[in-house]
């Protein structure tokens, strides 16, 4: 199953990056949301996939025996999902506020930090 997931990961990355490269804040945001999924699925697949057996120790056993999914990538991804969500929310609000302040949703027009025709620094001492 890994090859299929690998290609799916590639597709997710491609779309995310394509959206990133568009200049509109909204599309960049959606790209960010997809990028989070892409990375999570990447980690998940790299930890190898097993079908349908969650890493839960049966009641009468002391340790996980037999085929079960790899718990480590799951633990990594679980926190990553929540954190990427909070960052997505942050980006969303940032983009929204930028739109309100600058009245544009195009990253090309957002030139507050690096204005066009910035003055050269003083050449003296």
């Amino acid at each position: 199953m890994e090859p299929i997931l690998a290609m799916l990961v590639g597709a997710l990355f491609t779309v995310a990056i394509y959206l990133f490269l568009s200049k509109h804040v909204i599309r960049i945001l959606m790209g960010a949301a997809i990028l989070g999924n892409a990375v999570n699925l990447l980690i998940f697949t790299a930890g190898r996939v097993t079908r349908e057996v969650p890493p839960i120790i049966p009641g009468d056993a002391d340790a996980l025996t037999g085929a079960a999914a790899n718990p480590l990538p799951q633990a990594l991804i679980l926190t990553a999902i929540v954190i990427s969500f909070s960052f997505f929310a942050f980006l969303l609000v940032l983009g929204y506020r930028a739109f309100q302040e600058l009245e544009t949703d195009s990253s090309d027009d957002m030139r507050v930090a690096e204005p066009v025709g910035d003055k050269t620094p003083p050449a003296g001492y």
């Binding site: 969650p54 839960i56 679980l78 926190t79 999902i81 929540v82």
Partner: peptide, 12 residues
């Protein structure tokens, strides 16, 4: 701790 679940999911 013993079944699927936990703080993150519950919180969400």
């Amino acid at each position: 701790h013993n079944e699927p679940g936990g703080g993150f999911i519950g919180g969400l």
